[in-house]
Simulated assay, not measured.
Amino acid sequence: MTAHPQSPQFFLTAPSPCPYLDGQFERKVFTHLVGARASALLDLLTQGGFRRSQNIAYRPACERCRACVSVRILVDEFQPTRSMRRVMQTNADLFGEMAQAEPSSEQFALFRRYLEARHANGGMAEMSAVDYAMMVEDSQVDTRLIQYRRKGPDYRITGRSDEDLKAVALSDVMADGMSMVYSFYRPDEADRSLGTWMILDHIRRTRELGLPYLYLGYWVEGSRKMQYKIRFQPQEHLMAKGWERYAEQATD
């Protein structure tokens, strides 16, 4: 007899206020990512517009709104704009060390600074050190933590640095690309454009891994919080008939 693994069970959340569009309510469909099939299931669900949070894969299932659109960058075709090249030059003194996802007190301190400066009223504002550790560690897929620091005097020899942490990205490596799960950075260094820099660095890393896509999560037209994602082109959007190339021209 052939034993067939149990199919995932999907659940639907109750309506709650939308964090992106005023006056709208969101609902999500979700399932658990557990066991030996977690990575394969995440690959399949991500291609279908799901995102990961800890051991949960979810996607919007709103009754009256379809504003959330899954976005992925075509990394082999990507060319940075002039402003992006300036960001790369500004941050040439930084490097990112990618390792297994393990939390630290230094990361959490930066995480709290970021939330207090950028998302003081958001849903993550009350997260404790334990909550943060769970966000980082609670994964049964190939999850990496990239820590960005300034290159120290011994960097050319050791490839490491003891400089203060500038930014952190929690990312998944999948069969067809990388997916940026969550990132945060020093809020007092706005001139570095560290959010943009981390996406550019992930495009480079995804290309070096020989993978075609960098998944950025959802773009919400009309939401200022999400507008930055549209700058990284060419990109594809998940529409009713599947992934389609987005035609709008990137702005510099």
Results as ranks from 00 to 15, higher is better:
Arg192Cys: 10
Ser193Lys: 12
Ser193Thr: 01
Leu194Gln: 08
Leu194Pro: 04
Gly195Met: 02
Thr196Glu: 03
Thr196Val: 12
Trp197Val: 00
Trp197Met: 14
Trp197Ile: 00
Met198Gln: 13
Met198Ala: 06
Met198Phe: 04
Met198Asp: 12
Ile199Thr: 13
Ile199Arg: 07
Ile199Ala: 14
Leu200Asn: 08
Leu200Gln: 01
Leu200Trp: 05
Asp201Leu: 07
Asp201Arg: 13
His202Ile: 03
His202Glu: 15
His202Arg: 15
Ile203Gly: 06
Arg204Val: 13
Arg204Glu: 14
Arg205Ile: 04
Thr206Asn: 10
Thr206Ile: 08
Arg207Ser: 11
Arg207Leu: 00
Arg207Ile: 01
Glu208Gln: 13
Glu208Asp: 15
Leu209Met: 13
Leu209Tyr: 14
Leu209Trp: 09
Leu209Arg: 10
Gly210Glu: 09
Leu211Gln: 13
Leu211Ala: 05
Leu211Ile: 07
Pro212Met: 06
Tyr213Gln: 07
Leu214Gln: 11
Tyr215Arg: 04
Leu216Pro: 11
Leu216Phe: 10
Leu216Ser: 10
Gly217Glu: 06
Gly217Tyr: 08
Gly217Ile: 04
Tyr218Leu: 11
Tyr218His: 07
Tyr218Gln: 09
Tyr218Met: 04
Trp219Gly: 08
Val220Cys: 02
Val220Asn: 09
Val220Tyr: 01
Glu221Gly: 09
Glu221Lys: 14
Glu221Tyr: 02
Gly222Ile: 09
Gly222Phe: 13
Gly222Gln: 06
Ser223Ile: 00
Arg224Glu: 15
Arg224Lys: 15
Arg224Gln: 13
Met226Ile: 00
Met226Cys: 10
Gln227Trp: 00
Gln227Ile: 00
Tyr228Ile: 01
Tyr228Met: 08
Tyr228Lys: 07
Tyr228Thr: 00
Lys229Met: 11
Ile230Arg: 11
Ile230Ala: 15
Ile230Lys: 11
Arg231Phe: 00
Arg231Ala: 05
Phe232Trp: 00
Phe232Ser: 02
Phe232Gly: 03
Phe232Leu: 09
Phe232Tyr: 13
Gln233Ala: 12
Gln233Asn: 01
Gln233Met: 05
Gln233Leu: 06
Pro234Tyr: 01
Pro234His: 03
Pro234Asn: 04
Pro234Ile: 03
Pro234Phe: 01
Gln235Asp: 08
Gln235Ile: 10
Gln235Glu: 06
Gln235Pro: 00
Glu236Cys: 09
Glu236Ala: 06
His237Trp: 12
His237Asn: 06
His237Ser: 07
Leu238Ser: 02
Leu238Asp: 08
Leu238Glu: 05
Ala240Arg: 10
Ala240Ile: 11
Ala240Leu: 03
Lys241Asn: 09
